[in-house]
């Protein structure tokens, strides 16, 4: 599994893990994120069971199990959090931050030790070491209960499935040619994102944020001017089930 650093200032770091060459080809490639600050770490979108081994190996290069105080799952899908039952064995004191509506669904993955902390619909703040992360509502994009994670200091928005693309493992971590990249996103966004209204609400919300990197859970990340290009493209895109009949 490859690793790139997205941000580093003192003990405050963002790492992205992905493009796993050892991944079974039947499994989609996903991005996992580790945010660290002052001896505390949170794993965003820990991933599926099948890549748990590579993820555990990768995160231990940068942090220790004692310092991983929380996991975050934007929603309930297996590629996001089906590894929960395995993390549950190594992080007995950690919390799982996830939309409150998914608690009893997520427990199906195995959650005997990890404590569930549901995020209410309007979102909330999360203290990590000396910094604060914001859980930004992104409901119906694509899951009915869904959050992004925004870091004001690092100017990074972890956008979950928004901006996701199905890339090859040798594709660069960052989008370089936006127009070419849209072909990898269009079907997914039209088919999975269920509501134009929810999409417009989300765009209005995130346009108020200062974002340097928009980091989806699948595919290349958007940096600098690519962030605005993505928002403009998404704004124009008609999404929802009516478009896929």
């Amino acid at each position: 599994m490859k690793t790139i650093s997205l941000y580093q200032k003192g003990s405050h770091k963002w790492l992205c893990f992905g493009r796993d060459p050892d991944r079974d080809e039947k499994i989609i490639d996903t991005n996992q994120y580790l945010v660290m600050n002052n001896e505390q770490s949170i794993i965003l979108e820990p991933g599926g069971i099948e890549l748990f081994s590579q993820m555990l190996t990768s995160v231990l290069r940068y942090t220790s199990l004692d310092e991983i105080t929380a996991l975050f799952a934007s929603h309930q899908d297996p590629d996001i959090i089906s590894s929960l039952g395995l993390w549950d064995q190594c992080l007995p004191k950690a919390k799982l931050m996830s939309p409150a509506i998914w608690e009893s669904f997520l427990a199906h993955f195995g959650m005997n030790n990890i404590q569930f902390e549901g995020i209410s619909d309007e979102g909330s703040a999360f203290q990590l070491g000396n910094t604060s992360l914001q859980f930004i509502p992104a409901h119906y994009l694509q899951s009915p209960g869904n959050f992004n994670v925004y870091d004001k200091e690092a100017k990074i928005l972890m956008s979950g499935d928004i901006g996701a693309a199905l890339d090859d493992e040798d594709t660069p971590f960052f989008v370089e040619n936006f127009d070419a990249h849209t072909s990898k996103m269009e079907f997914f966004h039209r088919r999975w994102m269920s509501s134009n209204k929810a999409k417009d609400d989300w765009i209005a919300r995130v346009r108020k944020l200062d974002i340097e990197i928009l980091a989806p859970q699948k595919g290349s990340l958007f940096k600098g001017e690519m962030v605005q290009k993505f928002l403009n493209w998404f704004e124009r895109l008609d999404v929802g089930i009516a478009q896929n009949k």
Partner: peptide
């Protein structure tokens, strides 16, 4: 739990070698 201990220990080994 022994299996869980194994995957944790071995992941630690890999990180030390890294």
């Amino acid at each position: 739990n022994g299996a869980a201990e194994t995957f944790i220990a071995v992941a630690h080994v890999a990180s030390e070698l890294f």
